[in-house]
Amino acid sequence: MLKISRLRAGLPHRMILDGIDLAIAPGEVHVVMGPNGSGKSTLAHVMMGKSDYLVHEGSISLDGNELISLPTWQRAQAGLFLAMQDPIEVPGVTTAAAIAAALLSRGVAASDLPVLLEEERIKVGLGKEFLDRSLNVDLSGGERKRNETVQLAVIKPKYAILDEIDSGLDVDALSLISRRIEHATQEWNLGVLAITHYKRLLNELKVDGVHVMVKGRIVESGGPELAAALDRSGYSEYLD
């Protein structure tokens, strides 16, 4: 179980998350939606332990282990993964090398890595050449998201935070990526927290909960029907 309780966090001098509660069980998919500036990406980075943010109160636990005091890499090794909205360029470090280092850091032998990479890149339609290219350098938005998904699928975290994995994707890419993630929820019981603006991510992804986030709080939770309602009417009813 990935559990967020009473989480208050933000930048120095600016509170952004104002009491978040959220629980995700293995294999579940939860979607956080909300207008720009509501703190969705902040939630993703606070969960991952990015040093820019301060946590004032609350808890983030994974299978009962508190993550708040752990550095990012230990949270990742505990089973958390963040697919970034804007994946960072790392010149000279290839996708294959980064994944190999990620596995080696966990003490996992990477002997069948080339085979795994090949399988996974085909599943999301990422060209073979990208595996040996510098991470995210000269990649289109869509290629970056496919690349993030390949990394997720090979690293096999317990829980993945997908920060707008659907932005910048065409319909076909979105379908491949969401199908891959849906499959992962069955394959190894991946739990998902997906941050998105669009209902279309939910077309291929079976969703267990939809949460509306406004001004750093979850103001409403429901099922897929809530996403459909938001798609029609927007967030205006929450904003005043």
Binding site: M48, K50, S51, P71, T72, W73, A76, Q77, F81, L82, M84, P87, I88, V90, G92, V93, A97, A98, I99, A101, A102, S105, R106, L135, Q151, I155
Partner: peptide, 17 residues
């Protein structure tokens, strides 16, 4: 940070970078 989110410790991340 990006490499750390993959589970790579900072010293190893720095070496890669």
């Amino acid at each position: 940070y990006y490499l750390e989110t993959r589970g790579i410790p900072p010293e190893k991340a720095d070496r890669l970078i």
